[in-house]
C-alpha cells in the first residue's frame, strides 16, 4: 500500500515541480476557505447549521477511521479529506435535514463512494455530491423542503423557532416567475445570501471569498470554476426563461449551489481532469448540464447531477486531451502515434 501521508500531492500534468504541499495542507486550505460560508450559514439558519455540519464531519471521520481499522489499512483520517467531505455534504443539505439523515449520507459518501474504491484519490465521483444524491433519492421530501432565512433566523437574531418552508429562488426561475422572485429577493439579497437554499450554498459572496482564497493559495486553478460559471452565465443571458437576460442571468448564477459547486465540488482533484484544457472542457460540460437540468429537467437544481455526470466523463476527457510532449521530434511523434 502506498503511504499517502508522505506522498507529495501532484495534481497537474507534467512537467512536475515538487513543493511542500501535502494532502493535509491542501485540505486545511479548503477547510479555511469554507469557513466564511459556514459562518454565514450559522448567522442565517442558527446554531442548528453548526450542529449539522459538526455531526456530518464527525460522521465522516468516524466512518473513515472505522473502515480503515476494520480493513487493516493504514489510517488516513489525519489527511483531513474526510473532514472536507463532511463539511461539503452538510453544505449541500437543507438546514433542516435530520441529523440521522446526514449520517446516512456520510456513510454512503465515505464507505461506498470513497473507501470501497480504494480511498482518497481513487473515488471517481465526488463523495459529498454522491452522498447528497443518495439522500435526495432516499428522502426526496425532506431534502427539498427549504426554510426562508429571513423568517427562520436563530432565536438570537430575532427569528421565530417554527420552521417556515419557502420556495427557493430556483423554483421561481424554473417556472419563469421573475416578477414573483424580484418581489421577494433582490439581486443583492441573492449575492449576499438572504435567500433560501442549502446550508452552505446561499451566499455567493462568502463562497467567492473562499474561492478566491483557494485560487490565491493555488489549491485550485481558475479553469474549472470560471468555465463553469461563465457557461451558465452566457446560456442564461442568451436564453432567459423570462424577463431580461441580465436579470435572469444574475439570479441564475447567484441562486442555487452554482458557486459552491464550481469552486469546491467540481475542482475535486480525484474526479476532475488533470490538464488545463481538460478542465475547461469539464467546466463547460458542467455548465451545460446545469442549465439543461434547470431548464428541462424535473428538478429545480442541476449542479449536483451535472458535476456527477462530468465526473464520469473525466477519464474520457483525460484520455483525449493530452498535454503536448516536449523533446519529441516530428518523426518520433508520428511513430508514437501509431
Amino acid at each position: 500500500m502506498t503511504d499517502y501521508k508522505n506522498l507529495k500531492l501532484i495534481a497537474t500534468s507534467n512537467p512536475h515541480i515538487r513543493n511542500n504541499e501535502t494532502t493535509r495542507s491542501i485540505m486545511l486550505d479548503v477547510i479555511i476557505a469554507m469557513i466564511p460560508a459556514l459562518v454565514w450559514a450559522i448567522i442565517c439558519f442558527g446554531v442548528e447549521a453548526l450542529i449539522l455540519t459538526a455531526v456530518s464531519v464527525i460522521g465522516c471521520v468516524v466512518f473513515e477511521a472505522l473502515y480503515r481499522i476494520l480493513m487493516k489499512k493504514p489510517q488516513s483520517v489525519d489527511d483531513l479529506s474526510a473532514v472536507v467531505t463532511g463539511m461539503l455534504l452538510a453544505f449541500v443539505c437543507p438546514p433542516t435535514t435530520q441529523l440521522w439523515m446526514v449520517l446516512i449520507g456520510d456513510f454512503f459518501a465515505i464507505i461506498v463512494v470513497k473507501q470501497l474504491f480504494g480511498g482518497i484519490g481513487k473515488n471517481f465521483i465526488n463523495p459529498a455530491l454522491a452522498g447528497r444524491a443518495f439522500l435526495l433519492g432516499s428522502y426526496a421530501g425532506a431534502m427539498t423542503s427549504w426554510v426562508d432565512p429571513a423568517v427562520n433566523k436563530a432565536p438570537i437574531f430575532g427569528g421565530t423557532v417554527d420552521v417556515v418552508t419557502a420556495a427557493t429562488p430556483l423554483a421561481y426561475l424554473k417556472t419563469g416567475n421573475m416578477d414573483g422572485l424580484k418581489e421577494i429577493y433582490s439581486v443583492g439579497d441573492m449575492f449576499l445570501g438572504k435567500s433560501g437554499g442549502s446550508l452552505g450554498e446561499v451566499s455567493a459572496l462568502m463562497l467567492l471569498i473562499g474561492g478566491v482564497y483557494l485560487l490565491w493559495r493555488k489549491v485550485i486553478s481558475w479553469h474549472t470554476p470560471v468555465a463553469y460559471i461563465a457557461t451558465v452565465a452566457v446560456l442564461t443571458l442568451l436564453f432567459p426563461k423570462a424577463g431580461s437576460g441580465v436579470d435572469f442571468m444574475l439570479y441564475s448564477i447567484f441562486g442555487g449551489g452554482l458557486f459552491l459547486g464550481a469552486f469546491f465540488m467540481a475542482t475535486d482533484y480525484a474526479s476532475s481532469p488533470i490538464t488545463k484544457k481538460g478542465q475547461l472542457i469539464y467546466g463547460i460540460g458542467c455548465g451545460l448540464f446545469t442549465v439543461f437540468i434547470r431548464y428541462f429537467g424535473s428538478y429545480n437544481e442541476g449542479v449536483c447531477y451535472s458535476i456527477m455526470v462530468m465526473n464520469c466523463c473525466t477519464a474520457l476527457i483525460d484520455k483525449y486531451v493530452k498535454p503536448t510532449r516536449f523533446g519529441v521530434v516530428k518523426s518520433d511523434k508520428k511513430g508514437a502515434a501509431k
Binding site: W100, I104, V112, L116, F134, G137, S138, Y139, A140
Partner: peptide, 22 residues
C-alpha cells in the same frame, strides 16, 4: 419514513448487487 428509499429504486438495485458481487 426512516428507510433509505433510494435502495427501492432501480439505482439501489445496482448498488446492492455491486456490493453483493464484491
Amino acid at each position: 419514513d426512516y428507510g433509505v428509499g433510494m435502495l427501492t429504486l432501480p439505482v439501489g438495485g445496482f448498488l446492492t448487487l455491486a456490493c453483493l458481487i464484491a
